[in-house]
Every structure is written in C-alpha cells, then in structure tokens.
Amino acid sequence: MTRYFLAVHTRPTPGRETEYHRWYDDFHLDEVLQVPDFVTAERHVLVQSEGSQLLGPGSHLAVFTITSDDIDATMTAFRHAQKSMAQPACLDADSVALSWWRPLGSRTASSSPLVPDSA
C-alpha cells in the first residue's frame, strides 16, 4: 500500500466560524473518512502565510491520509462521494482548494546537536 495525502484548504463564511468548526469536526471529517482508503484526518488553522494568494486570514487546512494500491480508483471514489457531501452555508465555497500528494521521502531531526570534530 502506498501512502497519499489529500490537502483541503478552506475558510469559513465570515460570521459563521462557530458553525463551520462544528460542521467540520462533528460531521464532515467522519463523512470523508467513510470513503474507502481514507484512514486519518487532521485539521489545522493558518498561523502565518508568505507569498500565497490561496491562503489568507481565517484559512484552514484539512489533511487526510490515504493508503491505496490504486490512487486513481480512490480519487474516483472520493469524487463520487463528494456529490452527496453537504456544502453548508458556513463554508466559503470560493475558498475550497483540493490537492493530492504522494510522499517522496522523509527525515527526522536528530535528538542531539551535531558536534564538530575537534582538531
């Protein structure tokens, strides 16, 4: 199985932030996780952005982890499921942007600082 990520950038409709968070946390994450091969969901709020027209105040990111042997079939299943997913008024529809990602590699920071060799 190969691991993938679906990143979904959104913003709440101004003045409807509480409703947006309730919808996302209490309904939408579970709705998406019912799509085959979707295994985890995380939500994030933008702290700062530099140089992106997509991101701005109030931007949020949902990251869904997917494990699949056939990502094309998984994306097709997601698009089919999307047709029945609610688009509530608390979601700024113009802010929605989806992107699919496959990891290329990873590294972990060392737990001890690098010490140069003494001469």
Rank of each mutant, 00 (worst) to 15 (best):
V96G: 04
Q82R: 14
L114Y: 14
T10W: 04
T40V: 10
V115Q: 14
L29W: 01
V47S: 05
V47P: 01
L29S: 07
R79F: 14
P116L: 07
P88C: 09
T67A: 13
V35P: 09
E17G: 10
F38I: 01
L98G: 02
E19S: 03
R43I: 03
G105W: 07
E42R: 10
R102G: 14
P12W: 08
Q82S: 14
V115M: 15
S112G: 11
T74M: 04
C90F: 07
G15V: 08
T65D: 00
V35R: 00
L61R: 03
A86I: 01
D70Q: 14
V63Q: 02
R16L: 10
L46D: 14
E31V: 12
D69F: 00
P36E: 00
L6H: 00
S52I: 03
D92N: 08
L91S: 06
M75R: 15
D72K: 07
L29M: 12
D94V: 03
S99L: 03
V96N: 14
Y20G: 05
T2M: 07
R16F: 10
S95D: 10
V8F: 08
G105I: 11
L55I: 05
R43V: 10
I66S: 06
S110G: 03
R22N: 03
M75L: 13
A119S: 15
S111W: 07
V39G: 12
A93L: 10
D69C: 11
V32N: 02
D70Y: 00
L6Q: 03
T74S: 01
Q82K: 12
A86H: 03
D37E: 12
V8W: 01
M1L: 10
H60P: 02
S59N: 06
L61W: 00
S49I: 02
R79H: 14
L54T: 13
Q53F: 03
Q34T: 11
L114I: 15
V45F: 14
P57K: 10
R11M: 04
T40M: 08
V35N: 06
G58M: 02
T76Y: 15
D37G: 07
P14G: 05
F78K: 00
S84N: 12
P12F: 06
E50S: 13
V63H: 08
Q34V: 06
G15S: 04
Q87A: 12
I71V: 14
S118T: 12
S106P: 03
G105V: 01
G15W: 06
D37T: 10
T65V: 07
D26F: 09
T76S: 15
L46N: 02
T10E: 03
F27W: 04
W23T: 00
G105Y: 13
L29Q: 11
A97V: 14
Q53K: 00
H44G: 04
Y24P: 02
P88S: 00
E17L: 08
R79G: 07
P12D: 02
G51K: 07
P103Y: 00
L33A: 11
S59L: 05
S95H: 01
A62C: 12
M85D: 09
E50W: 12
V8I: 15
L104I: 12
T108F: 10
Q82E: 12
L114W: 15
D94I: 01
A77P: 11
A109D: 11
A109V: 09
Q82L: 09
S110T: 08
R16H: 09
S118H: 15
L55K: 08
S118Q: 15
R16Q: 04
L104H: 01
